[in-house]
Structures are given as C-alpha cells and as structure tokens.
Amino acid sequence: MLKQYSFEETAVQSFDAQTTLALKTEDLQVFYGANHAMHDANLGFPKNQITALIGASGSGKSTYLRSLNRMNDGIATVTGKIWYHGVNINEPNVNIYEIRKHIGMVFQRPNPFSKSIRENIVYALKANGVKSKADLDERVEKSLRGAALWDEVKDTLDKSALSLSGGQQQRLCIARSIAMAPDVLLLDEPCSALDPISTVKVEETLLELQKQYTIIIVTHNMQQAARVSSQCAFFHLGHVMEYTPTGTMFSNPQIPVTQDYIAGSFG
C-alpha cells in the first residue's frame, strides 16, 4: 500500500536572474479528459545543462515532457504557460511545427524511419527547404558525429536504418533530432529499451551534447539521473514534489516522499 504524502509539502527550486533559462513552465496543467494528470508544474530549465525528470510510473513525468513541444496536442488538454525565448508557446496561435524544430524529441523506443540512415536525417531537412547536396552531406556527418554514431555507420549510410542495433538506432534518432539544430532536446526514457553498453554510449553522447543543447531527460533509472544530470525534478502522482541540483537530490532529499523514493521504498 502506497503511503499518503501531502502534496502541499514540496521543495521546488527557482532560479535567480543570473541563470539563463532555456525553457520554463508556469502552472502547467495537463488533463486527459476529466483526469487531471499534471498539477501546477513550475519548472525552469537552465541553458546547456541536463535536467532529469524522475518518478515512478504514472507520476506524470512523460506527460509533462510531451507537453513541452506540444506533442500532447490533440491527445490531452494542456493549460498554463510554457516560456521559450520570452514567448508563451502554449498558445493556440503558435506555429507548433516551428516550435518542434527548436525543441526536438527522442522517444522511449528507437523509432527510426524505415528509410536509409542518410534519409532518416535528411528527410526533415529537405522538407524544410535545405536543398544542396553538400549542405545535406555536411549536416548528416555533423549530426552523426554529434550522436557518436559516425564512425560506426559512415560506410553504410545508404543501408536501411532498421538494420542497426537498438542502441545505434537510438543514437540515430538523437542525430536526426540534432540535425534540425534545435535549442532544447527532450528525451523520454531514451535508454529503457537498450542494453547497458548502449546505454553508456547514449549517456556519454548526452554529456557531450549538453555543451550545445539544453537537455531534459525523463528516466526511470535513478543511477542514470545521478550520472548525467545537473538538475533533477522528482514527480509523484502528477505533482512536482522536489526540484533541486542532482547532488542535493540524491545526498540530501528535502521532503519525506523524495527520501522514500530515493531510498527505494516505492516506485
């Protein structure tokens, strides 16, 4: 039986004016029909850092993440504000296709297109008007290098992406996202379908990528959050309970619910 914790007792940090935030949500609520899946999420994401969202299944962390680039449009009702470069992107008149180019996403299961490795990366670029072959080739190489996949696939770019291993596919999905030159990269449990060795590779890739991108990663795995993130938010039953620097979260959690979760009492 899950213990009852008060949703009033939270410890959510906010950042001072010196910290540049890449993305910030204000009173974000998510409803699936009558089901209130996310309550009052007030989180800021510092630029060029990795923020981990942790919590048990059903805590609302993926729901929250998917709201950030409006992937919940048509699935759930999202209210509240999402600030990106001074614009509230949670407005009906915002061009969501443009937003998603700036805020990329990588999913739980690797989902490369059933096309060649090269075409996986250039398809969306071409659709956005990048025409020249030289440009495209350069973007392919750069993004594959960024995702630490170039050396493994440089001779087989025209082979089907589905012939890659799971870990390679996931890194291809990361490459595909960063080829669009986003600011922010959202990752929804990117390693949950991968073996430990592939997981290490993806984590190394992320640590490298934070120099250029702001990364928000949902993970089930507390060790992973501890290894890669600088900030960490703990979600519980649709509420953000605690948001602190990762070191603090794991060494000195502020409130009982986080203490119990970190100690492994539930989840």
């Binding site: 180019k101 999913f107 490369p112 059933s114 956005n128």
Partner: peptide, 27 residues
C-alpha cells in the same frame, strides 16, 4: 504502421500530411 513513426515525424516539425505521405505511406 506504428504510432511511434508518426510521433517521430511530428517531433521533427513535419506536418501531419508530410508525415503521412513521406513516412507512413511508404511503409
């Protein structure tokens, strides 16, 4: 065709139509 293919297309800023024609239809 798996939903995840559609999500992949949409998450890259492709329109629903472009995703459907260029990614889902070939599969």
């Amino acid at each position: 065709v798996s939903r995840s293919q559609r999500e992949a297309g949409l998450s890259l800023g492709l329109s629903k139509w472009k995703t459907e024609i260029g990614i889902i239809l070939p599969v």
